[in-house]
Design a binder for these strands. Structure first.
Lengths: 198, 198
DNA sequence: CATACCGGAGAACGAACGTTCTCCAGACTT
DNA sequence: AAGTCTGGAGAACGTTCGTTCTCCGGTATG
């Protein structure tokens, strides 16, 4: 039985603190990578004591997992919101690359957090590798669904997904958003060939 | 003045040991990532004592840099060898994706070591980020040169390079070599549109 | 043969970090 | 008002890891 009291009010509810911790960790992990952000840094930045951190989460690994899960939801929501604003199948698929372009241009863009996490921990922490795989699989399935709705052939979805992946790594490493435009032009050519014209 | 004596013979020449260390480190870093392979593991696997490791290299960071440099040379050589076997501009460009397909199928394939290193250390070790950037820039320039020799338009090179990057991350995360075939088919369509027919 | 040197095995050191513990102040319950 | 619980500040613990040091056997040089 959970009791809500003035004590909770002083320290904020557990759920709110959890969200704050995940948001802070998300930002720090994105900025500096996972391994180089210690629990002390997370405490300093979030203002949540170590004791409470370990009451809310059993380990750092679980925090990382929840950060990746929240990133997945936020990222997929952002993409589908951008897609929803476009009209017509072709414009909707192109909206993915416009979204990427805008994302790459943000000044805290440090590459796809999932790709980075995979490079950082994919070889040693199997649970994280699974989350990364699921994220990419979800994105590929989403693109495939859009292609299907557009009446395009089955081979187009994987191709567009690969373009999006390549744009992400290229933009992250080169430090420019140019790759998004290159990928967008390639997507137009592929859609032309697939007969998606409107 | 370097003296070659029986003492050196017992312990092997410094250059040979350096090469052995780099090769061993290359394999271990590829398998388990950089951070999780300590100097003790490198000593155990290479048979070179810590004392000698630190006589040959000033620090682990320098070893990592040399591993990446040697990977770059080996990778670029492998790609150009595969390209050289093909005849005609179109087949040469497609040979890149055939090379990727074969690479992804190797059982010790764990993704592009440069992308992984970037995710692992790009945010904290600037010298490594530079090496990764240079590697990707070299590859992009190589593709652009092939496109130019084929008489293709300037926009095609970046597009093919993005496909190759996307195939690498997709194959690494998904654990299949399917992405290479998808990327190859996309490359054919893009070359068709660019007028590279033979 | 004596001595200086090279290198191996492995201990040792210092820092970083994940996790837990101690001490204590404030707030709710009875 | 006494007792109990929560949570903060920060010390402490154990481990990992990069790097250096100690000890010692063997080799080459006088």
């Amino acid at each position: 039985m959970t009791k809500v009291t003035a004590n909770d009010a002083r320290a904020s509810s557990d759920d709110a603190v959890r969200d704050l911790v995940i948001a802070t960790a998300d930002s720090l992990y994105n900025l500096r990578g996972i391994q180089s952000v210690g629990m002390d840094a997370l405490r300093d930045e979030s203002g949540v004591s170590l004791k409470r951190l370990y009451k809310l989460f059993p380990s750092k690994e679980v925090i990382v997992e929840e950060v990746l899960r929240s990133r997945h939801e936020r990222w997929m929501s952002s993409v589908s919101a951008a897609v929803a604003e476009a009209s017509g199948p072709r414009q909707q698929l192109l909206a993915i690359f416009d979204f990427l372009s805008a994302w790459f241009g943000e000044n805290d863009f440090r590459g796809c957090g999932f790709i980075n996490s995979f490079g950082e921990l994919g070889g040693t922490v199997e649970s994280l590798a699974g989350i990364v795989r699921d994220h990419k699989a979800d994105f590929q399935a989403y693109v495939a669904r859009l292609v299907e709705q557009a009446g395009g052939p089955a081979w187009l979805g994987p191709q567009l997904a690969i373009l999006a992946e390549g744009a992400q790594t290229t933009a992250a490493i080169a430090g420019t958003s140019q790759a998004a435009d290159d990928a967008r032009r390639a997507a137009e050519i592929l859609m032309d060939a697939a007969g998606i014209t409107e």
